[in-house]
């Protein structure tokens, strides 16, 4: 489904700040996989997602999705295949536009846009139904400006927008990290629901080990731009937070003490 082969990515080439963020990374996702990605700060998790989304190209290596080489396809062109939710709740929506206008933009992802009216009455009914499923009461606020919504509501809306046109791959970049615990839980539940209902292939980056274990059928741990641990199926379901911590201790030779990870 998604194949990454021998990917390298270095930022700030030939400067004192040079940093190799992705170091010979190879990854192969099967259709319907729900993969959680964990790792400390600077492990390259977000960079991995950005490379797949096409925010920047890799220095070397290749990326293909469903058999199509997308290594150098511009971001806006591969958006046709991808649903994305960002860490920052402000990033996924247009604040000065109405909820229904945002949905209408997402509804046309991967389609030709012309001089037809930007939103039709027929699709509004679809949006009402979909918003109803979220259970946040947004269906009665279709013409509210998105900027007036809370972070959790915006993130739930972004999730809906990312999946309104079924994507081949759903990319979730710590999409609950900026939310309070109970809202984060709610958004994660919704994520689980939507992924299961549409049988979506999903790559979810998280800082939270418990979440990484709880969700998905496969778990990847990254460290210094490499995948250092990759479990799936039954082995993953038996995994405990202490196992993961131990893994981290081994690869980082004890220097690993990321409080953000320990606290979660």
């Amino acid at each position: 489904m998604l194949k990454l082969n021998g990917i390298y990515k270095t930022f700030n080439h030939n400067t004192v700040n040079e940093k190799r963020v992705i170091n010979n990374l190879t990854l192969d996702l099967k259709k319907g996989d729900f993969v959680t990605v964990i790792g400390g700060n600077g492990a390259g998790k977000s960079t991995l997602l950005n490379l797949i989304a096409g925010v920047y190209p890799p220095d070397s290596g290749s990326i293909s999705l469903d058999g199509e080489a997308i290594t150098f396809l511009p971001e806006y062109k591969r958006a046709k295949y991808l649903g994305r939710v960002f860490q920052d709740p402000m990033m996924g929506t247009a604040a000065n536009m109405e909820i229904q206008e945002n949905l209408a933009l997402a509804y046309r992802r991967g389609k030709r846009r012309g001089l037809r009216w930007g939103i039709t009455n027929k699709e509004k009914q679809i949006y009402v139904d979909k918003l109803n499923n979220l259970g946040l009461g947004l269906e009665s606020r279709m013409s509210t400006k998105v900027g007036l919504l809370s972070g959790g509501q915006r993130q739930a809306l972004t999730l809906l927008m990312a999946t309104l046109q079924q994507p081949k791959l759903l990319l979730l970049d710590e999409h609950t990290a900026a939310l309070d615990p109970s809202t984060a839980e709610r958004v994660l539940d919704l994520t689980q629901q939507i992924v299961a209902a549409n049988n979506l292939t999903t790559l979810m980056v998280t800082h939270n080990m418990k979440q990484a274990i709880q969700y998905g059928n496969r778990l990847i741990m990254m460290y210094e731009g490499k995948i250092i641990f990759d479990v799936q199926g039954e082995e993953k379901s038996k995994l405990k937070v202490t196992d993961l911590l131990q893994k981290f201790e081994i690869v980082s030779q004890g220097s690993f003490a990321n409080d953000r990870m320990l606290l979660s």
Partner: peptide, 23 residues
């Protein structure tokens, strides 16, 4: 109000989001 016009409006708001929607 058209599809293209909506994309231009959204670009002024948040161009990352607009690219993520394939524009």
């Amino acid at each position: 109000g058209t599809e293209i016009g909506s994309c231009i409006r959204a670009t002024g708001n948040n161009d990352t989001m607009v690219r993520a929607q394939g524009v």
